[in-house]
């Protein structure tokens, strides 16, 4: 600043056209001060724009509310679908016992050899747990099957083989791995036959794969919806404030200076929409909880509806806010480059 002022007073005395120093041109870009001062000023500007944009939203409460509600519904849709998926996975997890593999060992294999085999199997990385069911345990189990079970007592000798029950890992995520496991188990000479409800598992896996794909597709669509909804709202806002933008440009504002509060508006819209979406999802869950758990009780299940975790909730709000910010960013810069003061 000092340099410029000195130059100006000098100019009065000698009104001659002089080529400006490079420095002078640069100085005109911004006010003086150290880099630290500038950083502080810049930060203050952003903080101001941040609150100012919130204030602006409040000045058009009806329009803002409509946008936020529409956004929230889209986001809530994505959130509910995710919850559906999480809960479905949980139900599927409860059924995991059905994915259990039973190895019926040959008659000549005694319990000791069965335990040695079990120890070997435990080392297999595809296996979660191994349990040996001795002939006696088998008999006891058999007896619990009502009057038919009692028939076993009429036999002199226990006809049941030793059974090894295997719980494979990652029952749901995998396609093919379990089949391979079953095949290798069948090869073992101690094994008479292997029993497992493969078809059921495969079906479940297929459904989960479809659901996951659907989840990705739906989220992508909803993400675009958020971009467009915010983008459009910000575009309208820009149109309403053409005059102000034009004046600001004329007094030397850069596009980023003008864009900042609009981008923060996008942030606020997304943020509030995210919070509202969370409440919508919560409401949905609360209303579903009682009937779902009643249903579960009918099937002797102890199923409890899972809700979005704290991390998932934060993610929901953050994703909503950043998508919305991105949407406004795209629109604002596109529009500002197009508008020239008239």
């Amino acid at each position: 600043m000092k340099l410029r002022r000195r130059k100006q007073t000098q100019e009065v005395k000698v009104p001659k056209q002089a080529k400006p120093l490079r420095q002078e041109v640069k100085q005109n870009r911004a006010a003086g001060g150290t880099a630290k001062d500038k950083l502080i000023i810049c930060r203050d500007l952003h903080i101001q724009a941040w609150f100012y944009s919130l204030l602006r939203l409040g000045k058009t409460p009806f329009a803002s509310a409509i946008t936020i509600v529409v956004l929230a519904i889209s986001i809530a849709l994505a959130g509910s679908f995710q919850l559906l998926l999480i809960n479905f996975q949980q139900i599927a997890g409860n059924f995991q016992t059905s994915a259990q593999i039973s190895l019926f060992l040959r008659e000549n294999i005694n319990e000791n050899r069965a335990r040695i085999l079990a120890d070997t199997l435990r080392k297999n990385p595809a296996i979660e747990s191994v349990q040996v069911i001795s002939k006696e345990q088998g008999r006891a189990l058999f007896k619990t099957f009502g009057s038919f079970g009692a028939a076993i007592d009429m036999l002199d000798e226990n006809p049941l083989p030793v059974v090894i029950e295997i719980m494979p890992k990652n029952t749901l995520d995998d396609d093919g791995q379990i089949e391979t496991l079953v095949n290798t188990l069948k090869q073992r000479q101690e094994v008479d036959f292997v029993r497992m409800d493969m078809e059921w598992l495969q079906r479940l896996q297929a459904i989960m794969a479809v659901a996951r794909r659907l989840f990705v597709a739906l989220n992508t669509l909803l993400g675009f919806a958020v971009l467009f909804i915010t983008g459009n709202t910000i575009r309208l806002e820009l149109n309403n404030r053409q005059e102000e933008i034009m004046i600001t440009k004329l007094v030397g504002a850069t596009n980023s200076f003008i864009a900042t509060p609009f981008i923060y508006s996008g942030f606020w819209i997304g943020f509030f929409a995210g919070v509202l979406a969370w409440f919508i999802v919560a409401l949905l869950m609360v209303s579903l909880r009682v009937p779902v758990e009643a249903l579960s009780a009918h099937y002797n299940g102890n199923f409890h509806l899972l809700f979005l975790s704290v991390a998932d909730s934060i993610k929901l709000i953050l994703v909503s806010a950043s998508l919305s910010m991105l949407g406004s960013c795209l629109v604002v810069f596109n529009q500002l480059n197009k508008t020239n003061p008239q």
């Binding site: 006010a31 001060g33 000023i41 203050d44 007094v251 030397g252 200076f257």
Partner: peptide, 10 residues
């Protein structure tokens, strides 16, 4: 406004 745009402090 022009001063804020030019980056002057408060």
């Amino acid at each position: 406004l022009p001063l804020i745009i030019a980056g002057y402090g408060h």
